[in-house]
Amino acid sequence: MFLKHKVVLALAALALASPAFASEQHPTAAELESELVCPICDSTLDTSNAEIARRMKAFIRVRIAAGDTKSEIKGKLVDQFGQGVLAVPPRQGFDWLAWLLPLAGIGVATVAVGSLAWGWSRSRSPAETAEEPALDPDVERRLDRELDRFE
């Protein structure tokens, strides 16, 4: 049973890893063009028709034909134009902040909203129950009589 779980996990990991591996080893021009930015128009290459974007697309096709991996092609373009050509920042060094800050922001916002909601509900419930006015004894007697008629 334990071995079966291991095999299933290994197969699942393999199924997830193989497309990423294939993409790294044999990238397509379309995926690279969507992951790289035209340095003068700040839009991805696939949506840019600028002269430099066309030149970069041609470069990508040449490098794919030469058998370069995705990382190698990106590395060559970063070497020429800087990190700014990457549509998403790499997960390394200072650039980790670009990934971590939004997550930290979501976390802080969740905790803040949760705390406020919790505090609000706690402060409101006892006060409301405490402030409920008691029924007038006459009204209460009439209410009891009316209720008795339905029994």
């Binding site: 803040a112 705390s115 406020l116 505090g119 706690r122 402060s123």
Partner: peptide, 10 residues
């Protein structure tokens, strides 16, 4: 506790 949370938020 609630007032502390509120103060922290502020």
């Amino acid at each position: 506790m609630t007032s502390r949370v509120r103060l922290g938020g502020q």
